[in-house]
């Protein structure tokens, strides 16, 4: 059973529909206790770091995510749910959960880039993590973001993407995996990645 964390961070509909489509048992919950009893956790989100952290602090859901991560059970963070796993985000200088060492940095518009980074971009994963099993290297996934993960250790990086600079588009630490892109909006390969998460 997968517990999907509902912390008012945007719309969970697309995650819900993708999980229903692949036929996996899940529930969406705001209750820390209920989420801690799940076998796996998905920590999604579309939103802004500081307001997300405020909700996580106020509701106790932030502690629940930390406790789940420490339990050894598989956890998947998506987009803002990936960024919040780090120590700190440059988005309104927000202290985050500190589950994966590193920071979240802002794309500089000085580089002539369009921000947000929006659309399909390639992920070089080199088969470094089973979450990419059966997915070709350099496959394109769907991204929408203005900040990007920068893990403290290269070991955490399991996927790399080029947008003006090269950044870590997928990261992992022990039982915790996180993607900056949206697997639930990345077509069949995105659904494949979600299925792979279920068999981790």
């Amino acid at each position: 059973m997968i517990g999907v964390v509902d912390y008012e961070a945007g719309n969970l509909k697309s995650v819900e529909l993708a999980l229903r489509h692949i036929g996996v048992d899940f529930y969406i919950s705001k209750d820390p206790e209920k989420l801690l009893s799940a076998d796996r956790m998905i920590f999604p989100g579309v939103g802004e770091a500081q307001s997300s952290m405020e909700v996580l602090d106020r509701t106790g859901l932030g502690d629940a995510v930390k406790e789940f991560a420490a339990s050894g059970k598989p956890l998947l963070g998506i987009c803002i749910g990936c960024q919040i796993l780090f120590d700190f985000s440059e988005e309104r200088n927000t202290d985050c959960l500190g589950i994966i060492p590193g920071k979240v940095l802002e794309f500089s518009s000085d580089m002539g880039l369009k921000v947000p980074h929006m659309g399909w971009n390639q992920v070089s994963h080199l088969g470094r993590h089973p979450i990419f099993d059966g997915i070709d290297d350099d496959s394109a996934f769907y991204f929408v973001h203005s900040y990007y993960p920068s893990p403290a250790s290269n070991d955490a990086e399991i996927g790399r993407t080029e947008y003006g600079i090269e950044f870590s588009s997928a990261v992992a630490k022990n039982n915790v995996v996180a993607t900056q892109f949206h697997p639930e909006k990345s077509g069949e390969i995105g659904l494949k990645l979600l299925k792979n998460f279920i068999s981790l």
Binding site: K13, S14, L17, A18, R20, H21, Y142, V144, E184, K185, S186, G187, E188, G190, L191
Partner: peptide, 8 residues
């Protein structure tokens, strides 16, 4: 549509 397609 949202139930059937998994792209934006």
């Amino acid at each position: 549509v949202a139930e059937q397609i998994f792209i934006p």
